[in-house]
């Protein structure tokens, strides 16, 4: 039975550090990696009719950008290191969606970076990593 580790990526330096920590862990435990890119999105937000019309196009390009600029290059690099990698791009509320993906892919661990929000920012908008730690049913490693 293979172990899977889900890594939350967003292209930031923090998420790169989380990935390298996860890679080290995967090598030690002979685990597979699931690289997840979640695009912040709420089905209850408001848009102009023009934005609604362009939504499908924009969604496609968002997914493509995530794949092309982040997920595919990382996947290729890791493949050469001999690690099995799956990638997934999903729209949704970040913490909640990561947990759903973790569930779907049967991952037993989550690695994430942190955005280092200021206290005020976190108070108003909430912190993704804090929400993840609070609500996850699997161990979460937050890499500074």
């Amino acid at each position: 039975m293979s172990n899977k580790i889900l890594v939350a990526l967003d292209g930031s330096d923090g998420s790169k550090r989380a990935l390298s920590a996860a890679v080290a862990h995967a090598k030690l435990t002979n685990s597979d990696l699931v690289l997840a890119y979640v695009i912040d999105w709420s089905p209850y937000s408001f848009h102009t009719p023009q934005e609604l019309e362009e939504r499908h196009k924009r969604r496609e390009s968002e997914i493509q950008r995530a794949n092309d600029s982040i997920l595919t290059p990382e996947k290729e690099a890791l493949k050469s290191e001999g690690i099995n990698v799956e990638t997934v791009v999903h729209h949704g509320k970040i913490a909640q969606t990561l947990l759903e993906l973790c569930d779907q892919h049967g991952a037993s661990q989550i690695y994430t970076g942190r955005q280092g929000e200021s206290r005020v920012h976190a108070m108003i908008f909430g912190s993704v990593s804090a929400a993840l730690v609070q609500t996850s049913s699997v161990p979460v490693t937050v890499v500074p």
């Binding site: 999105w41 089905p43 209850y44 408001f46 848009h47 009719p49 969604r59 997914i63 729209h91």
Partner: peptide, 16 residues
């Protein structure tokens, strides 16, 4: 996921 939801379509039409 990420496509226009029914809620969004309704909200936009109502605001019109």
């Amino acid at each position: 996921h990420g496509e226009v939801s029914h809620f969004q379509a309704l909200a936009t039409a109502v605001s019109g």
